[in-house]
Design a protein around this nucleic acid. Structure first.
Length: 637
RNA sequence: GCCGGCAUAGCUCAGCUGGUAGAGCAGCUGAUUUGUAAUCAGCAGGUCAUCGGUUCGAACCCGAUUGCCGGCUCCA
């Protein structure tokens, strides 16, 4: 069963935003958490009366409250705050809803009484600002518990005593209203449940989740390494990780052949001019590695005493040229397309490449394999006629679904990323965007995938359909993506000859079922908790001789497996069998082959699986056939 | 990039209010030859992230830098 979850409210289209009526439908647990945020504010004000509060909503798994305060709240403060919160809960204060006029609300805010225990010398500045943003026709309500009054649409539980169990979890910073031009506030995170048992369960689950963090498993299972000296966000795939990556690539390549793609290879760098044409440079210059300048040009500039700012300007203005580490593969594929004339009979042309691209991501955002500066996309670009767009889009979506299905990844959501019409960072005309958006909507409708439309999530050249999954900490990552593009064909002047012998503009589709191999692999490690299905497992079987006397027989079995292309090793340490099994189990090897006197005599193999333990004796051919089948069908366990 | 926290052996962590480092696992050596999640013993391993400061004396206090973690912003 597919499990659909919902996107953050902030990204949804305006028509999906919660109306005051919809807010009343907040679930019980959300009310508990929202109420707990008010209790948090009450407690903080009792300790630091000057705190200025902004917003304090319930979120998935908990709640937070943003506040401004000279004192930097840190985890050691939690104990004191929690003790005060417990008092507020014990006081069992009723939550009273008070409807006020706009004027009354403004007066209270000016007296510093909103998000406060009483009048203060300083106005409640954030509340004042929030008030200004409330539509004229909307009712303004306050909620009061004890001395604490807050501007709040509600709803709440009846009394503070209804909050069963809570805990503050972390402190972070956040820009007011999520805008980096606004002041940074302190955000105190917490969680609350109806009962203590549920709270404890939640923390237990979180502990479990941490164990499958791909950064931890990646190190323990020796899959990848990120080295300071190599550079931030640059992944080194170790031998075992490389096997997984190669198997994934082989899987995709197989599907691509079935769907009529052609594989190509293109270089990692290209002239700046190419990316000027595509629009990547200079519009996305701040998210790319700086251009590489030819040695002669550099020498000349040095003689001229050219400053960095000047250099940047001249690069931008096109006065001097250079090379760019490619941030995307599309311009290269476009050049392959345009290198020969095309007839409508040739289309669609589907060019695929595992292309490595480089992007200058902000340092604070880098981490593990999910956010990196160099990554390999399972990229492809389809050049087709307007009439073929729908069919091609459908093929792309089917490919993504096939990939996710094979790996058993069922917990994802689908979003249509639209441009933010207020932003200037997109290329192309409104008409082009409109056509592309309609094409995507139609396709999604035709295969009946539930999805949400979100503003500001488009690529700069066109809207897209993204498959978004969550990692173990609950963060969302975009994996597979399918994008329609009327813009780049225009910018590069692409054409094909139509049936009536007139030149026509092809449409481009960009798509990547994995997104990037790095990110996908990171998510996959967590999805399987390191227990990769046989076809992906770096080590598929390990031969475990019971004693040195059986090593020779063990080696003969090992040779048999290796000859059959099964990734196997033998454990010839002097450990007892229990220890060898434990080690193999911890290293998550799918099959352990225990070989002793009995097996040597009968010529059999005692099979122990990672999942089910001892499975009894098999003949060697029987076992080989079984696991070859398991690999071939890409079975999951 | 911004805010906050953290940084001790390959890994997981001890190290009281300042007196210049310790364990388990992994590694190496030897003994052991073992029947489904840990055989025993010995050895080795650290400029306590880096640099600077305070101090008679710094893993511990202060500052800067780097990296990691959690958020925010950004994300073609």
């Amino acid at each position: 069963m597919r499990h659909v979850y919902f996107p953050p409210l902030s990204k949804l289209m305006p028509e999906d935003r919660k109306s005051p009526e919809a807010r009343q439908q907040m679930t019980e647990i959300e009310r508990v958490r929202h109420s707990c945020a008010h209790v948090l504010a009450t407690a903080i004000l009792r300790i630091w009366p000057a705190a200025q509060f902004a917003a304090g909503p319930p979120v998935e798994n908990g709640f937070y409250y943003d506040l401004e305060l000279d004192h930097h709240i840190s985890p050691p403060d939690f104990e004191q705050i929690e003790a005060e919160m417990r008092k507020v809960i014990k006081e069992n204060q009723p939550f009273d809803r008070i409807v006020v006029s706009r004027n009354e609300a403004f007066e209270l805010a000016k007296e510093g009484r909103l998000g406060a225990l009483g009048p203060r010398a300083v106005p409640s500045k954030f509340k004042l600002d929030i008030l200004r943003g409330i539509p004229e026709d909307e009712e303004i309500s306050l909620y009061r518990n004890g001395d604490f009054t807050d501007l709040c649409a509600g709803p709440h539980v009846l009394r503070t005593g209804n909050i069963g169990a809570f805990k503050l979890t972390s402190i972070a910073s956040a820009y007011y209203k999520g805008d980096s031009n606004n002041p940074q506030l302190q955000r105190v995170y917490g969680t609350a449940f109806k009962t203590r048992t549920e709270l404890e369960q939640y923390f237990q689950q979180r502990e479990e989740a941490k164990k499958r963090d791909h950064r931890k498993l990646g190190r323990e299972l020796e899959l990848f390494h990120i080295d300071d000296e190599v550079g931030l966000g640059l992944v080194l795939w170790k031998p075992k990780g490389a096997i997984i990556r190669k198997e994934l690539q082989a899987f995709i390549s197989e599907e691509l052949r079935k769907q009529g793609y052609s594989e190509v290879f293109t270089p990692h760098i290209g002239k700046l001019a190419l990316f000027r044409t595509s629009g990547h440079y200079p519009y996305y210059r701040e998210s790319q590695f700086p251009p590489l300048i030819e040695p002669d040009t550099l020498a000349r500039l040095a003689e001229e005493d050219c400053s960095c700012a000047e250099l940047s300007n001249r690069l931008k203005g096109g006065e001097i040229d250079g090379y760019l580490l490619k941030p995307m593969n599309c311009p290269m594929h476009i050049k392959i397309y345009s290198s020969t004339p095309h007839s409508y009979r040739d289309l669609p042309i589907r060019l695929a490449e595992f292309g490595t691209v480089y992007r200058w991501e902000q340092s604070g955002e880098l981490g593990g394999m999910t956010r990196v500066r160099g990554f390999t996309q399972d990229d492809a670009h389809i050049f087709c006629t307007e009439d073929q767009v729908a069919t091609e889009l459908q093929g792309c979506l089917e490919l993504v679904l096939k990939v996710l299905g094979t790996l058993g990844m069922s917990s994802y959501r689908v979003r249509i990323g639209l441009r933010d019409t207020d932003s200037a960072k997109y290329v192309g005309t409104s008409a082009q965007w409109h056509r592309a958006e309609e094409a995507l909507r139609e396709t999604v409708k035709s295969i009946a995938i539930p999805c949400t439309e979100e503003r500001g999530e488009a690529a700069f050249y066109g809207p897209k359909i993204d498959f978004v999954v969550k990692d173990v900490i609950g963060r969302e990552w975009q994996l597979g993506t399918v994008q329609v593009d009327y813009n780049l064909p225009e910018r590069f002047g692409l054409s094909y000859i139509a049936a009536d012998n007139s030149p026509r503009r092809p449409v481009m589709i960009h798509r990547a079922p994995f997104g990037s191999l790095e990110r996908f692999c990171g998510v996959l490690i967590e999805h399987f908790a390191g227990n990769f299905p046989l076809w992906l497992a770096p080590e598929q079987a390990r031969v475990l001789p019971i004693s040195a006397r059986h090593e020779e027989y063990g080696r003969s079995i090992l040779k048999l497996l290796l000859d059959r292309q099964i990734r196997a090793t033998i454990d010839e340490s002097s450990d007892k069998i229990g220890a060898k099994i434990r080690l193999a189990q911890l290293e998550k090897v799918p099959y352990m082959l225990v070989l002793g006197a009995r097996e040597e005599q009968t010529g059999e193999i005692a099979v122990r699986s990672r999942k089910n333990g001892d499975e009894g004796a098999f003949s060697a051919p029987e076992f080989v056939e079984r696991i070859q089948m398991e690999v071939k069908e890409r079975q999951r366990d």
